[in-house]
Design a binder for these strands. Structure first.
Lengths: 135, 135
DNA sequence: TTCTGGGTTTAGACTTAATCCAGACTTTGT
DNA sequence: ACAAAGTCTGGATTAAGTCTAAACCCAGAA
């Protein structure tokens, strides 16, 4: 099962294993921005013997191999994002939820030309509240 | 001594005290982006009996009263920034140092008009390396 | 001056996220 | 089947941050 995922791990240079597959299945597929502990909790449903250390190891491995991005923008927590293409982030003041904002939604002027800095990546971080749909 | 600072605290609605003054003296003046523990360490030079809890209380009070901003963008740490006017941030990949980038250095297109979001504040977070001065 | 009460500070216990480690287990190649 | 390399585990450890109860300080009232 899940041959595609196995292929994807191999391509990234990650040797597949039951644990890694289970973690990948959740974290590479989710729409959320889970923290390590949230990943642990979720994946333990499928694989109860999974240890915390393995989750941390696996997530860091995935980040290293470019399958995940690590975000450090939310309230005191490190969080993982499976969307690799550049995008911005909106953080809800009330709930702390992080949402992706498409790259095209915000235009940012030339950043690579900043004197003194070699910018590898950048994003706009917005904070505020979500507007209820008006009828 | 330091009448100005005392005035500033009072204006912000903070009742001055020896500890709060000492913390203010460091954290409102620094060019860095210190973490709570760095503040503790520094201010203990001037006030050795200062307790960790007081530093946390004071920093949070300052944030609440608008004397400081809390940043959550660096490697797993909450960090405080005494510059209240809007600006962007550059984070050095190697050292983790955070530097301020003037608001005018990067132009960002209209963000307030994003459908579905009420944006209270935003900033561009850049990551990369500092360029050595070329001769 | 002494008393009193509110706000402030303290040390230490506690919580939670994250890391480390040594041994056990699995997989791979021969 | 075996050895070596790689992976996983539970538990101990570290570190950031929070909480709490008792002590402290000081301004105003008596």
């Amino acid at each position: 099962m899940n041959l595609e995922l196995i292929e994807r791990l191999k391509e990234a240079g990650v040797q597949p294993s039951a644990q890694r597959l289970a973690v990948a299945e959740f974290v590479l597929e989710t729409e959320q921005h889970p923290s390590a502990d949230q990943v642990l909790e979720q994946v333990q449903n499928a694989l109860p013997m999974l240890s915390r250390a393995t989750v941390y190891n696996t997530l860091h491995l995935f980040v290293e191999k470019g399958l995940l991005r690590q975000l450090v923008i939310s309230e005191g927590r490190v969080v993982f994002d499976p969307r690799l293409e550049p995008h911005h982030h909106f953080i809800d003041d009330e709930t702390g939820d992080i949402e992706d904002v498409p790259w095209s939604a915000v235009k940012v002027g030339d950043v690579t030309g900043l004197k003194g800095y070699e910018v590898r990546e950048y994003m706009v971080v917005m904070r505020g509240t979500k507007v209820k749909k008006r009828r």
